[in-house]
Design a protein around this nucleic acid. Structure first.
Lengths: 334, 334
DNA sequence: TTGAAAGCGTTACCAC
DNA sequence: GTGGTAACGCTTTCAA
């Protein structure tokens, strides 16, 4: 592997000059530049990012923490991050988190300046003690899909999203609408489901609709458990005519339950999800869409700006939008 | 940020000693070690991985190239890689590939020693010219889900998988079985669909069954286009009683088509997929399962072995297995 | 416009 | 056991 010294020697110049050529410094004569470039080509020389980083005093790695297990949506966000970062000199260093223990380890790594220049945390609320350390050290960290006070974040207004879902179903004429979401005391402290529920209940109240007893259901995140609680809901003496699920994955479970009971959708049951993952379109699922890919891209841009010293990045709130598909319609329209 | 010199000075020892303590060298007295450790703690000192890498002559990064767009299965493989790497000192540097142009760029990066110590390529056949360079430089590269001559690979026997699918359906009594897979001249050169088709056709021939005209269909990978070609198949004067799809994603499209026509599954149509992605279990889809997570983990271990200088890693072939679910049954069993 | 040399923070070798 | 010091490959002064 050729080094800068080899290139300098072969080109008959000093290493400083080679360095200037590499870094597009204007202080090199065209003649010299051409010569050096030729040698670089000939020797197939590539600067060592390690040595460069050491000399410059910073690395080129950005840590990205992702709970893969959580939902299909985090993958889409990650793609957004990768798309932006791949156009820069930064490398995307990936940390998967599948357990609370792993989460704490990963956040520990983020706190170490030597491993990465900055970090992006996707869909994962930080543990309080690690957060304190992050604050103390003023490490450049951007959160995506989580709102952490004092840190740049890319989020959506989950409460508003809940209201949007309620409004859509109310406008179709539904009155008996149930909610299916996550437990609100999970190990990782995810809170979006709770906020969506709140917005939904608010929206119902605003329209003068109270939720019947037992119409708010919480089950471990996943299609299967959503299916199970929905089966219970539909078995009620006076079942709902519509369900708002806190995520598309859960909404797919709701559809599954309806199908298993031979209930027509949307005639017998209308369903609205949240996220607009790829599978939602296939399933004809109406949903509250949030810009997943864009959230990752925006987060990466925020971090880049922070790293570039361009002041505090602040908060970014992305827009929500109801996507109407075959899974919703007027109640009782068999 | 404290450096090794700061620690040495504060502890009243030489930098060599501090280095020894960091690296668990036995040539340090307990007394000295304790003292140094205390100072490290006090100063919250963290060794610079950059400087360490430069001094040692190698980085600690492993490049992982993933075509995210391709299928849900690559994500599962990636998790396997992350799980293994996260337990080591190596960092997982992620490169997403969404286009041929990106693919070529990424492979170019892999060829640069400075950026990563070794690489893992998932589900992506390398372009021939880059492959040649990879060979010339003897860069440690492991392929997962692709068989590249001369390189360590983690694969499954796709041909055998096709045979397994054929056998399962034949045993149930099906004779008119169609195949739905990918185009065999795609931009990225994916070949697994073609091999699965071959095995399938072989399996049919071996049982004395010829495939009727037009029973082999190829459509751009994805649920929707699989649904479309299946609709055509089912519209034939003498339609198939079963379909083998080259991937679960496509099999879900096949199910979709059957449902749209009001065809009972498995009574009116049996369906077998390939992969066993998460959605397959939800959809009750019978499939040829390959160990996705394990393939990534195994690939990472192979690379680690290579990096550790433990000889050539060779090839690993993971087992396939038919998972029977509700989507298959005897033909005409309405 | 250019070359020489001093760092950057480690590790490893060589004396003591 | 331990300290001093030469690498590692680059960037960036400082002179010339």
């Amino acid at each position: 592997m050729a080094t800068i010294v080899d290139v300098a020697a072969r080109a008959g110049v000093g290493v400083g000059t080679v360095s200037r050529v590499i870094n597009d410094s204007p202080l090199v004569s065209d003649r010299t530049r051409a010569k050096v470039l030729a040698v670089i080509e000939e020797l197939d020389y590539r600067p060592s990012s390690l040595a460069r980083g050491l000399s410059l005093g910073h690395s080129t790695m950005i840590g990205v923490v992702v709970p893969f297990f959580h939902t299909p949506s985090v993958v889409e966000r990650l793609r957004g991050v990768a798309d932006v970062l791949n156009d820069t000199d930064y490398d995307l260093v990936l940390f998967n988190v599948d357990s609370v223990k792993q989460r704490d380890e990963r956040f520990g790594v983020l706190n170490r300046r030597d491993r990465s220049e900055g970090a992006l945390v996707i869909s994962l609320p930080p543990p309080p003690d690690q957060l304190r350390r992050l604050r103390e050290r003023k490490r450049p960290v951007v959160f995506v899909d989580v709102d952490v006070p004092g840190f740049p974040c890319v989020t959506v207004d989950d409460v508003e999203g809940g209201r949007l879902a309620a409004r859509h179903l109310l406008e179709l004429g539904h009155r008996r609408i149930a909610f299916v979401g996550d437990p609100e005391k999970g190990a990782f402290g995810f809170t979006s489901s709770a906020r969506r529920r709140r917005g939904f209940v608010e929206g119902m109240k605003a329209a003068g609709q109270d939720l019947p007893e037992g119409f708010v259901r919480r089950a471990p995140h996943g299609l299967e458990s959503a299916r199970a609680v929905t089966a219970e809901l539909l078995g009620l003496p006076d079942p709902p005519t519509a369900v708002f699920a806190a995520s598309d994955t859960q909404a797919l479970g709701v559809l599954e339950a309806a199908r298993a009971l031979g209930l027509e959708v949307p005639g017998g049951l209308s369903v609205v999800g949240f996220d607009d993952i790829e599978g939602a379109a296939y399933a004809g699922l109406a949903t509250v869409r949030q810009p997943l890919h864009q959230s990752g891209a925006e987060g990466a841009r925020l971090l880049l700006r922070l790293l570039g010293g361009e002041g505090d990045a602040g908060k970014v709130e992305l827009p929500l939008e109801v996507v109407v598909r075959a899974s919703t319609g007027p109640p009782g329209d068999l």
